[in-house]
Design a protein around this nucleic acid. Structure first.
Lengths: 217, 217
DNA sequence: AAAAAAATCAGGGAAATCCCTTAGTGATTG
DNA sequence: CAATCACTAAGGGATTTCCCTGATTTTTTT
């Protein structure tokens, strides 16, 4: 008989998560789902309380409370031996490369076949990683053309507030009034934010804000 | 023995779709998945070629080739007796209300429990519909506060192309060049589009485009 | 404590956006 | 067939945005 594989799953979409677990279970009885979490926070809490450490953690990127990035970071610090397989819908090169740099062992899109999922798990457990041509392609592209300075940027509360205001059709004057400052300062801050986020216009900022869930539509 | 329930499923995320099908099958052997499609176009083609008409079609909203709205419209014209259950991640009031107006029988978020899925299917087949408090709430809110003039607007190919260009940081001049026209025409068209979509600025257009999946992030 | 970096604000100017009017064209309709 | 509508295009002007320099202050680093 094969050795038991302990699996943890974290994804906020219940139907997807439950379906995924059914798929995993149907791969064979040696796959044991020991943790089923609805977000990163829930996952961390369950893992801390658990007597069993999973061999592999299957994580989504977009989750409330603690997202995929934060959860991977937490795992790296707390349980560095747990291998991470990301399953996500988003395929932004920046996100993928960032996760690879953080040491995740595999990355799957939500539109792969169940067989690929099994292969990914086995590959991670036996070879230590599972990188498809798509992923290595992204990685190579990033190495060659990648914007080395565009590491992940953390925005301050202030910057987020400003970004939210800039993503409306308020004018600088109106924004300045509501933040109790001058048009020129808003202008400066907009410029600084553009440089930080590597975009060229207010429109670019708004698109960044939407992409990164800084404003809710 | 219970009567067989013929089900069609269309969703572009393979893992989700396969998992959903496992969940449905595990509800009981009288649930038969007769069509499994990766998008609306695939769904229509399979249905046209099929000798069996499903009792219920479970559709995603965001799909390539033919999205949920278009698929429902097509079903209404071609197979008006097929009941539609939407399962989607997006919870925008406008989208939900628009689908309800189009006659869909139920709407589920992807983060409900599998039991809700079963209840939704049974409710639709026996009562004819499944509307949660959340959905009826949205509907009521829309009836009272809804923007009556902002019926759903269909954009032409041209308008979509323009909208996509306006949602970048290209200037009017650059957009005019790429569309082989003048700045003044772009300006006019931007204005016309603003009026049509009920927004006041280019930024508003970009936000509309993102909200309505006209540009991919 | 001194030096460096970052933030606030101003002036100014070029470019872009927004919005108005007008004019010609082609298609649709009463 | 005239009238209306939709589209292209231009002029013009008010406003906004973008980007530069530069002075002053605040914060961070050494």
């Amino acid at each position: 008989m094969q050795q038991t594989i302990q699996i943890a799953v974290a994804d906020d979409h219940t139907l997807f998560r439950k379906g995924l677990i059914r798929l995993l279970e149907s791969l064979g009885s040696h796959y044991k789902i020991i943790i089923e979490a609805s977000d990163g926070k829930d996952f961390s809490e369950q893992l801390l309380a658990s007597s069993v450490i999973p061999d592999i953690a299957i994580l989504d990127i977009n989750m409330p409370n603690k997202n995929g990035f934060e959860t991977v970071q937490w795992l790296n610090n707390t349980y560095p031996n747990v291998k991470v397989l990301i399953i996500s819908m988003i395929e932004r090169e920046e996100s993928i490369v960032r996760l690879l740099k953080m040491g995740v062992k595999g990355y799957l899109s939500k539109d792969v076949e169940p067989e690929d999922l099994e292969e990914a798990i086995n590959s991670i457990l036996h070879k230590g990683f599972y990188y498809t041509d798509f992923i290595t392609g992204k990685l190579m592209h990033n190495l060659i053309y990648g914007d080395t300075k565009s590491e992940y940027v953390l925005l301050t509360e202030k910057e987020i507030e400003l970004l939210q205001l800039l993503s409306t059709d308020l004018t600088y004057k109106e924004i300045a009034q509501s933040l109790d400052t001058t048009v020129k300062t808003i202008d400066y801050q907009r410029d600084a934010l553009c440089k930080k986020l590597n975009v060229v216009s207010r429109l670019g900022l708004a698109i960044y804000a939407i992409k990164n869930n800084i404003i809710t539509l």
